[in-house]
Design a protein around this nucleic acid. Structure first.
Length: 479
RNA sequence: GUCCCCAUCGUCUAGCGGCCCAGGACUCCACCCUUUCAAGGUGGCUACGCGGGUUCGAAUCCCGUUGGGGGCACCA
């Protein structure tokens, strides 16, 4: 039997980093087994639905190179892959469960349910539906109050509901006893619990890989598989990604919870994939830098941790810097262009292309994320009339440095050939030999005058790229 | 409140009864290199939550405790 796994995001906002995390582990196993990976959109929550969210899921997963074999956008033998388009699919199973006595109608209003729960909490008993509607007709029930006309359908959880199951990562797991879960909402949409079971079965899913937060609802799903006479898939409950305070990673507390944030910041997809693979997992080789293919080749569920890892941006930054340094200069240049262009610094002209080509080797070891290139190379691309010197750097390096700046200006002005070597030779002759300064002391004012900052790429190289005219102008302006 | 899951350096992790007075990586600190900042090199600090067992022997097994997390929706 061929292995089939799925990821099932809900289009309720910006794509979540957890979706990528789950996809990575699903896919690592799928590709190793030669199986198929299904992308299913779980859009049964009309209240939180967001139209552009689905396309963003496709974009970000594709950006990461986490590719799916079947999905709403790609089609496939089990189409449609959007739950909102499968409403007719679920209905017969609801009828079947109702007919066999495994489910019943419930007319309780949200208000009554809430009161019931609050009362249960006050009495310190487990919360759960009290089955007021069980065995009643609408007329019976309406007489009791707190009822509404449109019923929902609930599962009738039996006393002997199986609570234990085998998890690929955790082994034998015991989950809590479920409540009489709603499986069909008043609006006719199935809830997650029904839809996931029906779709997983109909789509031939063999392994359900999902977050730890689903452990407690697994007994409901098991029951549904059993009632419907379907074979149960295998389960793997992944640990939850955490904020630094250990809570479940959230968009409110953590910018890194949004997948698009990584694109905006200039993280490399290969670095993010590598990093996600490091969370809650380690290769048998103990290697920390690896590709998806390497991870997939040796993938093993027993190596997945049960502890929820904190998503540590510090280490991702290091990893990203490593991958940046690994890029060819051409590749890096191409990835840098959008950031410079978005900042309004890069116009795509041949002149700018030449400048950037020359600047890439100067910045390659100086970035943790691609977006840092904007501050690093602003001095090189900024229109001359917009060039400014950072006040703090001016205070520190320009005050009292007139002699250095003048000597440097004079030496450079006399230069016929404008190269890294000639610029450096002229500066050294004028400032080190001429004024008797150490190189560090001598270069600081020049750096600040020319780049506008106390921190910049190597100075003679930067000046060579900048060109004689701009260098002299800035030097004079600062003196 | 209730039920379930989990527990090694600050963080990510190795470890699955002796090879561990616990190894690697990130961070941090020091030094080297050096025109700033990086990168690179070398070295260093820091952990088996606690208490009981089991065993010749426990980070590894069991129990308890504490701590953290998650679920308890007509959300997924």
């Amino acid at each position: 039997m061929t292995v089939r796994l799925r990821v099932a995001p809900s289009p309720t906002g910006d794509p979540h980093v957890g979706t990528a995390y789950m996809s990575l582990f699903n896919l690592a196993f799928v590709r190793q087994q030669g199986g198929q990976f299904v992308l299913r959109v779980e859009d049964t929550d009309r209240a939180r639905f967001q139209a552009d969210s689905e396309a963003q899921v496709y974009e970000t997963l594709a950006w990461l190179g986490l590719d799916w074999d079947e999905g709403p956008d790609k089609g496939g033998p089990c189409a449609p892959y959007r739950q909102s388009e499968r409403l007719d699919t679920y209905q017969p199973y609801v009828e079947q469960l109702l007919g066999e006595g495994h489910a019943y109608h419930c007319w309780c209003t949200p208000e009554r349910l809430q009161e019931m729960r609050e009362d249960q909490q006050r009495r310190k008993v487990p919360t759960g539906y009290d089955r007021l509607c069980l065995g009643k007709t609408y007329e019976d029930r309406a007489a009791l109050g707190g009822a509404q006309e449109r019923p929902v359908v609930r599962m009738l959880i039996p006393d002997d509901v199986p609570l234990a199951f085998t998890d690929l990562i955790r082994g034998e797991v015991h989950a809590p006893r479920p409540d009489d879960q709603v499986i069909l909402k008043g609006d006719g949409f199935p809830t997650y619990h029904l839809a996931v079971v029906v779709d997983d079965h109909l789509m031939g899913i063999t392994h359900v890989v999902r977050g730890e937060e689903w452990i407690s609802s697994t007994p409901k799903h098991l029951l549904l598989f059993d009632w419907l006479g379907w074979e149960r898939p295998q389960f793997a409950h992944m640990p939850l990604l955490r904020n630094p305070d250990k809570s479940k990673i959230s968009k409110r507390k953590n910018p890194a919870a949004r997948l698009t944030w990584f694109v905006e910041q200039g993280y490399l997809p290969e670095a993010l994939v590598n990093f996600l693979g490091l969370l809650g997992y380690s290769l048998p080789s103990q290697e920390e830098i690896f590709t998806f293919a390497e991870m997939s080749a040796t993938f093993d569920w027993s190596r997945v941790n049960t502890v929820g890892p904190v998503f540590d941006l510090e280490k991702l930054g290091w990893l990203n810097g490593h991958y940046i340094r690994e890029l060819s200069e051409e590749d890096l240049r191409a990835r840098l262009v959008p950031f410079l262009a978005d900042a309004g610094l890069y116009d795509g002209s041949a002149g700018h292309l030449d400048l950037l080509t020359g600047a890439v080797p100067l910045v390659q070891t100086r970035m943790a994320v691609l977006s840092e290139v904007v501050d690093l190379l602003r001095f090189l691309f900024v229109p001359e009339q917009d060039f400014t010197v950072d006040p703090a750097a001016a205070e520190k390096n320009l005050v009292g440095a007139e002699a250095i700046l003048t000597a440097c200006t004079d030496a450079l002005e006399a230069l016929d050939e404008w190269t890294v070597e000639s610029v450096q030779a002229a500066m050294d002759a004028a400032l080190i030999d001429g004024l008797g300064l150490k190189r560090g002391k001598a270069y600081a004012p020049v750096r600040t005058a020319v780049t506008g900052s106390g921190i910049a790429p190597p100075l003679p190289e930067s000046m060579a790229l900048l060109g004689k005219a701009r260098v002299l102008r800035r030097l004079r302006a600062a003196a």
